[in-house]
Amino acid sequence: MGIMTNWPVAELNSVQRLRALAAGVSGAIVLERVVDAGVDDVWAILADFEHGFTMVQPDMRSVEIEARDGDSVTLVARSHYGMRARLRGIARPGYCWLQSRFLVIAMAAAPEPGGGTRVALTGGVRVPGRAAIVPVGVRRELRVSLDRLEGLLGT
């Protein structure tokens, strides 16, 4: 039997990839917004974990990069409430998915046809051992994050 070589190929941009992964997490809410800035400018803030990221995320007081190996990253985050989380995940241009035992944070950015950048965020308190997020307050926090991002971009 020969190898099939004519299978269709579907390519997803970063925002579509985030939507697809979040769809498999019970309680996950994805909030999106088109901002009037280029992808590189948006991602420069979001991927600057120790500075820009903490200014966008409402609950983050500080973030320290503990390890980075290619796309794999480990961060130690501290909240304004004194809690600490070791977040592990993937961070590549335009896409990041991080999780700890009790927390999920994911973000993506992709060029929007017609101009600007579509930014997508999801996250929340994770239910250990399950693909689930407690959705309480998540929508408000994601909206605050997008507002802060726009403020940092000057849009």
Rank of each mutant, 00 (worst) to 15 (best):
P135G: 06
L21W: 09
D71M: 08
R139V: 07
D40K: 13
M1S: 12
V134P: 01
S62Q: 09
A91M: 11
M60C: 03
P113A: 11
V119T: 00
A85M: 05
A22S: 07
A85K: 00
A106Q: 00
E11M: 13
V39I: 15
L121V: 12
S14E: 15
W7E: 13
R101V: 09
I133K: 02
R33E: 12
Q99F: 08
G151K: 09
G24I: 07
G124Q: 04
T5D: 08
G2A: 14
D71V: 03
P58W: 11
V144P: 06
F49M: 04
S72H: 14
R86C: 07
L121N: 13
G129M: 02
C96T: 11
R61Q: 14
I65A: 02
V9R: 15
V34C: 06
L18A: 05
I105S: 03
V35Q: 00
D40G: 13
G129H: 04
A23V: 06
P93N: 10
N6W: 10
V15S: 01
V35C: 02
G89M: 05
D71I: 12
E32S: 03
L75M: 08
S100M: 01
G70K: 13
A106N: 00
L21G: 10
I133D: 00
R126P: 03
R17H: 14
V127L: 10
S100C: 00
L103Y: 10
R92T: 15
M4R: 15
L18F: 09
L87M: 12
M60H: 14
A91E: 03
L103D: 12
V73I: 15
V76G: 01
C96P: 05
A67K: 14
G115C: 02
L153G: 09
P113T: 07
S79Y: 07
